[in-house]
Simulated assay, not measured.
Amino acid sequence: MDPIDERIVGILQSEARITFSDLGRRIGLSTNAASARVRRLETSGVIVGYRAILSSEAPDPGAGLEAFIDVRLTPDTDSTAFLKWAGTEYAVRDAVHVTGPYDYILRVVVPSTKALDLLLRRLKADAGAAQTQTRLALR
């Protein structure tokens, strides 16, 4: 990362929804150049996702069922693509690469068993999970 990339990362940490045009203006680059730099930071793994920060008046994001999902990826699933998918899923709080029979452990919080079922289906249909094992947190 060069000093321009460091400035980009600093701006995105506090203003993740800034337009490429505004970002470019603030750092002295064209819209296309700013966009290309952000994409390169994403591709290289420096930026792995974006999150919304909820106000204290929002519903408690921790309310609901907390579960741990062991995930084994299909042989053709790219780990970077899987992590990018996990970073866009609201229910996924953590994704940890592990040793053993599974590739990742996800810590998730969902409002209901129905939402957990839908998340498990999306893991297999959209994220490249070949097999999952789910454990519910009791306390």
Rank of each mutant, 00 (worst) to 15 (best):
V110D: 08
K114T: 09
V108W: 09
S30G: 13
S55W: 08
Y102V: 02
Q133G: 03
R37A: 00
P75E: 11
T134P: 04
V110H: 06
P61E: 07
G62L: 12
R25L: 13
A63I: 00
G28S: 05
G100Y: 08
I53P: 05
D78N: 15
T132Q: 01
I105K: 13
T43P: 02
V110K: 07
L138T: 15
K124V: 08
G28Y: 01
P61N: 07
R135T: 11
Y50E: 07
R139A: 15
L73Q: 10
G45M: 07
A34P: 02
S35Y: 14
I47F: 03
S21W: 12
E57A: 13
V38L: 00
I11A: 02
A81G: 08
T80G: 13
Y104H: 06
A86E: 05
D2C: 07
A52W: 14
G24Q: 00
A91D: 07
K124L: 01
D22Y: 06
G45H: 05
D94Y: 15
L116K: 02
T43H: 14
A125W: 04
I47E: 03
V98T: 10
L73A: 07
V110W: 06
V96L: 14
I27K: 00
A36I: 04
E15D: 13
V9A: 02
W85G: 08
A86H: 02
E66V: 14
P101D: 13
S55I: 07
A91H: 10
G28D: 05
D60K: 05
T132S: 00
A129M: 10
L116V: 03
Y90M: 10
I27F: 02
V38R: 03
G45Y: 07
L116P: 03
I69H: 01
H97V: 12
R7F: 01
I8S: 00
A33Q: 03
R51Q: 13
T80N: 14
R107Q: 15
A95W: 08
V98C: 04
R40G: 05
K114M: 07
D2I: 05
